[in-house]
Design a protein around this nucleic acid. Sequence first.
DNA 1: TGCCAGGCCTGTC
DNA 2: GACAGGCATGGC
Length: 306
Amino acid sequence: MTVRINAPDFNLAATLKCGQAFRWSRGPDGWYTGVVGRQVWRLRQKNQTLEWETTVSHPNPLPASGARGSSFIPSPVSCTGEGQGEGEVRRYLSLDRDLRNIVATFPDEPHLREAVKRHWGLRVLRQEPWETLASFIASSTKQIVQIRQIVELLAQRFGRAGCPQPAERLRRDEGIAPYHSFPSVDTIARAMLPELQACKLGFRAKYLLAAARRIDRGEIQLEALPKMEYQRALEELLKLEGVGEKIANCTLLFSCGHDEAFPVDVWMQRALKRLPTGTDFGPYAGWAQQYLFYHERNLRLLPLTV
DNA sequence: TGCCAGGCCTGTC
DNA sequence: GACAGGCATGGC
């Protein structure tokens, strides 16, 4: 079943390709396929209408071959939107936010105006905090294509096998692997370092493992971050080895609703040189940042491949 | 083949 | 406090 959602002021492609999420792929039919939680989602935009399809996880999970932990296996008729509300999609894509009001708070600078104009409709996602944190721990001095590869390897090795869409389910019999959810905190916490290193994490493997173990022990409570003041939430994440301000701010912005979080990487350093020193980006600095980041990438003829 | 990548840690000054 | 070097690995 395809659910149709009214989505004004929204740009699906920019939102999924702008470097805040690593698990979305665009098919030749224009559908974007990704894994959100334990579901496979398909999204397609036609003007102001967003089309959404999803799977439903099986009520009695079975182990997946090669994957650690229990699996979620599709029921034979699972590839529908039945039982799912569009509210979940609207929340994930921040369609419940008023983009015009957000952009109205941006500083009136020509370069930022141009970035917003070119990529109008880009929205900051509300992803799952652990997946976001882990993905950005893996991102350190990695190209985005490599981050996507690492995240996929982690999911295949430690995640739960999920439901491919109908057409692909047919091809699965020909050797197409199923989709996998991102591995849980406790699954990574129980992993051995060489297992993580085998996912091409390199020196980042020890940081991911240490973070998972501390979170699993309850020393850092990710679920509390969205409710904390921004500065307090930042300090919590900075307690983790291998997590500096850049990774912490990515986590707070892309998964915890802290709109003021402002990650600065090498691309943002370049973008900021185009703006007056000390520019105040306001309460939605993170949203402005994401427009600037994506615009900078495109100016360098490096549109993010999804 | 060399440079660089959505960084961070550590040692040195 | 500022800065440089090291860290793993692969795309370009």
